[in-house]
Design a protein around this nucleic acid. Structure first.
Lengths: 339, 339
DNA sequence: AGCGTGACTCAAATCGTTTAATTAAAATGT
DNA sequence: ACATTTTAATTAAACGATTTGAGTCACGCT
């Protein structure tokens, strides 16, 4: 690291002004092409590194986009992120990632850091209990925000997510169609819009089929494999002996199936299980998981596009954009088989 | 967004100089505590947002640390990242994450972007085929780099990873001890140091037990569940009829077990399977996976600590730090049971 | 010859901090 | 009372890019 190469280094060694160098490197038509080539060549041989902070201080655009979700290790968010990444990639944006683990404080810290760095925009899946001010904070400081996967009540920010109520009712109806009447709902929470919507979808489907809703059959819990695995014991000891389970997501479903197998029962035969999200993993689980496609890739792609469009000035209408889920029937569900 | 609040806004409204404000906000003892409080109060009510790019332009420290690995969605890296994150968190650093998917180009882009942003340091798990210049690039521009999970030949940069050769030999020996003689090795590649080390560990263990090494028993492939799942067919049709499989990692092992189950065989009884890494998931797989703990959390923690130490000036000795793996015996392996 | 035009290039101001050098004021010691 | 030290606040120069208005030059046209 001899010494830092900057615009002026290039300028001096070439006997021209930094203004010209700056323009040339950005392919401005204002500089003669011969000069431009000479400059670029020199930049390359000197090993010049563009200083974004200096540039961004002047231009107030940083090329940074923040993304904050509950947990990037969760494949559900992973699939969203992957879509965002590939969309952002082709547009010269760097993205900064963070988990909030549903801590409002962690989330606010992230937003503040992003503002300090001059982030151009943020895509977030709001933490449980996010106060409106926190989301507004971004917008107020000129940093557009897009919501994914979860929406917030009373906020009409652009939001992209699946239609949870409809999706879960698809799964529930599928089970009802197979003859199941005692259907449990495993995993999740009431504290997010998603949670309430999903429970609602389950309740609606049961009611429409004339089945009474038994609150005992709702077993909330962590939205992870571990959560599903641990719920199995409780599930299997329910007095009403459910023959099927609608799970919060694929992870819970896979965990639950593992737990059921451990207890000597066969998922898909003794007990039908549905997942939600249609993760890549669902198709190779044993048995292959019947689930609901939830369009993660679509959500990510659309959210990223919406943000990029907004950065380019187009002010698309706000509001919630729902992706329509679809059933994916595999081997983890089957006709009722009373135990 | 009325207008941007800056140091000078605070200074003017209070009738003092920006220098004082700057010092006060950073708790410098140079400013009287009464003044300091007044300033902080004002900053709060005005909604002041610290401009890191301006500061960092001046100080040339950005508080940004880059992390680039093969795939953040892979739980193996996920567990490393989690450890890095929690270590970095308490030290006021923002971290920027990226996948390189083993594309050298993507990786170099990331390093360049990080340099442009003035990153303070980088933790990387080098992509296959990374040229030495790319890693040197960081160091040459004053950005210390730490390697995790994979090492690079001929580079004595600080590296933290598991002892792969030893770890795989643990797994292989375990199977040999159970009476298995025809043991396949599933998944992975020869193109990384990790890959060569692991294969070496497998070969060493077999040789030491006087078992001939049959190259047909090596089935390379993607290091994912999908990869393991797809390898099952090939594995089950091998002419030598292996009774056990040493898998590249837990994902491959779980995929393989799913594939074996689909074929009507029972993993852990008909065929013994070992994983590698001891992901959280291993314990709840069906059957619970016998695997090798590979200290991801340890690797992440140590790497982050090493980087932070280096940023504080302490120049710890370079070189490779190996974490010693440990066997975790569960139900996916058992005494030989010739089919 | 004079003028307008177009093509390049440049000087200088600016972005919002930090910090070394400096001054001013207050406290301390003799 | 005066010199000295301490404390508090200020001035002004960076940091490295971008951008605008102005300047220079060569050329063609009347």
């Amino acid at each position: 690291m001899a010494q830092k190469i900057k615009l002026s280094t290039i300028a001096e060694t070439l006997g021209i002004s930094t203004a010209t160098v700056s323009l040339a490197l950005r392919d401005s038509p204002l500089v003669a092409s011969a000069t431009r080539e000479k400059i670029k060549e020199q930049a390359r041989t000197l090993g010049y590194i563009y200083n974004r902070r200096a540039a961004s201080l002047r231009t107030s655009r940083s090329g940074i986009i923040g993304v904050v979700v509950h947990d990037i290790m969760n494949p559900f968010y992973g699939e969203i992120l992957k879509a965002i990444e590939s969309e952002l990639d082709r547009s010269q944006h760097t993205f900064i990632l963070s988990n909030h683990y549903d801590s409002v404080e962690k989330q606010r810290n992230f937003i503040e850091t992003l503002l300090q760095l001059g982030g151009d925009g943020v895509i977030m899946s709001p933490a449980i209990g996010t106060p409106i001010e926190d989301v507004k904070l971004a917008e107020q400081n000129g940093m557009p925000a897009i919501l994914v996967a979860r929406s917030m009540e009373g906020v009409d920010m652009p939001t992209y997510r699946g239609d949870d109520s409809y999706g879960i009712s698809l799964a529930t109806n599928h089970l009802i169609g197979l003859g199941h009447r005692v259907i449990a709902m495993i995993g999740g929470t009431d504290q997010t819009s998603t949670g309430r919507d999903r429970y609602q979808g389950y309740v609606n489907a049961l009611r429409k089929a004339g089945i009474e809703v038994d609150p005992e059959l709702r077993i909330p819990g962590p939205r992870s494999k571990q959560g599903g695995f641990e719920a199995a014991v409780h599930f299997l000891s329910l007095p009403q002996k459910p023959t099927a389970a609608v799970c919060w997501n694929d992870l819970v479903a896979i965990g639950l199936m593992n737990g059921i197998s451990r207890a000597g029962l066969t998922p898909g035969v003794d007990i039908s299980v549905t997942g939600y999200d249609d993760l890549e993993e669902a198709a190779i689980a044993t048995p292959a998981l019947t689930t609901v496609w939830n369009g993660q890739a679509e959500v990510g792609r659309l959210a990223a596009r919406a943000l990029l469009d907004r950065l380019l000035g187009s002010h698309e209408p706000d509001g919630i954009h729902l992706i329509k889920p679809e059933m994916r029937i595999r081997q983890s569900t089957g006709p009722i088989n009373r135990r």
